[in-house]
């Protein structure tokens, strides 16, 4: 079975996380669960990848962290939540355009390969 190579997807982890945070602020495990379900279980993000994306994007000002309780009644343990910033939104749009371009270029070669064989 073909698996996603972590080298290829690395540049787009930020995009996935930001797209999830655009809907609502969320925390570590919740985000990784959403990535798994949105990708139809085809991509499982590693904990270390996720956390290093958080620290990197927080340093760049794309996301902000705060602590909150996932349980609405306030009975659970607090988690570090992240929310997207204005800069993060702009970065997300930029990354989307970049992806469109990348996809377009790469696909030309993929198609070329398919017709040849």
């Amino acid at each position: 079975m073909v698996e996603i190579s972590s080298d290829v997807i690395r540049g787009y982890n930020d995009t996935m996380i930001l797209s999830i945070l655009m809907k609502a602020p969320s925390y570590g495990y919740e985000i990784s669960k959403q990535i798994r379900s949105i990708s139809d279980e085809k991509y499982v993000i590693k904990e270390t990848t996720l956390y290093s994306a958080f620290t990197r994007m927080e340093k760049n000002g794309y996301i902000e962290s705060f602590t909150a309780d996932p349980d609405p009644e306030g009975k659970g343990k607090k988690r570090t939540y992240y929310r997207i910033t204005e800069a993060g939104l702009a970065y997300y749009k930029e990354k989307c355009e970049e992806w469109d371009l990348t996809k377009e270029v790469v696909e030309r070669f993929i198609d070329a390969g398919a017709t040849q064989s």
Binding site: Y29, S32, K33, T48, Y51, F54, K77, T80
Partner: peptide
């Protein structure tokens, strides 16, 4: 980093 990673692992484990 350690406490955040532990939290994520704990959440996953519990689920």
């Amino acid at each position: 980093a350690k406490s955040e990673l532990l939290q994520m692992m704990e959440d996953k484990y519990n689920e």
